[in-house]
Amino acid sequence: MDIASTYGLPEIALQLLVGLSRSMILFIIAAGLSLILGVLRVPNIAHGSLYMIGAFAAYTVNTVIGGAAGFWLSLILAPLFVALLSLIAERALFCHLYEREHLMLLLFTFSLMLILGDMVKLLWGVDYKSVTAPNVLKGALMIFGLPFPRYNLFLLIIGPIVGFGLWLFVSKTRIGKISKAASVDRMMVGALGINVSWVFCTAFVIGCFLAGLGGALVAPTMGITLGMDHTIIMEAFLIVVIGGLGNIWGALVGALIFGITHSLGVMLLPQFAIIFPYLAVVIVLIIWPRGLLKSVW
């Protein structure tokens, strides 16, 4: 099967752009997960549920406020709601468990995932929900003479902005620098008289905020449904691992690999498109077992 004969260059370029915009959402979610993994060493399976809650909360904001204002507000309010939820979870539950081993932490976050999943079912019901993007982002632009959805372009713009913001936070703010240090040696940071507990809390809340933001951003592109947490968390974990645990740029690289191999898969073998990213992950991990970029572990 030759790609060039069935698809022209513009089609391939466009398909890659679509893959790239999907990568941006994956990046935002995986970066949050990576931050939590790096600083707190918690493999947070509930991250996917927070993403789902972000999407459902965005739906609620959209139905209550409505119109373009509703959409833009949902991008802020839904992640804030998720962040508030995670703040409560961190202070009430997680902060007592940091000394436990990873397996226990993982199972604990899994139990949170079960609880949050059913909470969503209780609050929002089992039906499909959908959000419509405002008129500015509806429709398609012509690129290379082919239609390209405006919303995907919007994602391509917002991804780097979030990445830049995260970079500013980690390398320019005081708390960001402390959290970076805590991810390398938390004992030492504590010994210097810094309240590590609150640093952890901040990193956790910011990570979860990103999950909520990812959910709010994805809302107009797909049906919001129960069970959307199951696939995304696996993808996010794999992205974090191939990028290097705790490395935010690694999350970006991993997300790009994931999104682009998926879009290539759609062109090559549409039926088996979802296999391509997993295959890419396996190949990367066989060659670079500790991820592509330096991990903090």
């Binding site: 990873h102 691992v241 088996f272 979802i274 296999i275 997993y278 396996v282 066989i286 077992p289 572990w297």
Partner: peptide, 29 residues
């Protein structure tokens, strides 16, 4: 494939290989 790695990395490569098989079973009508 997994045994060369340890702890969380072991878990992750196993999950990715497993997901590969799941995706195959899921899509190979």
């Amino acid at each position: 494939i997994c045994i060369r790695l340890s702890k969380l990395y072991f878990a992750m490569i196993q999950i990715s290989l497993g997901s590969l098989l799941w995706a195959l079973a899921f899509r190979w009508y």
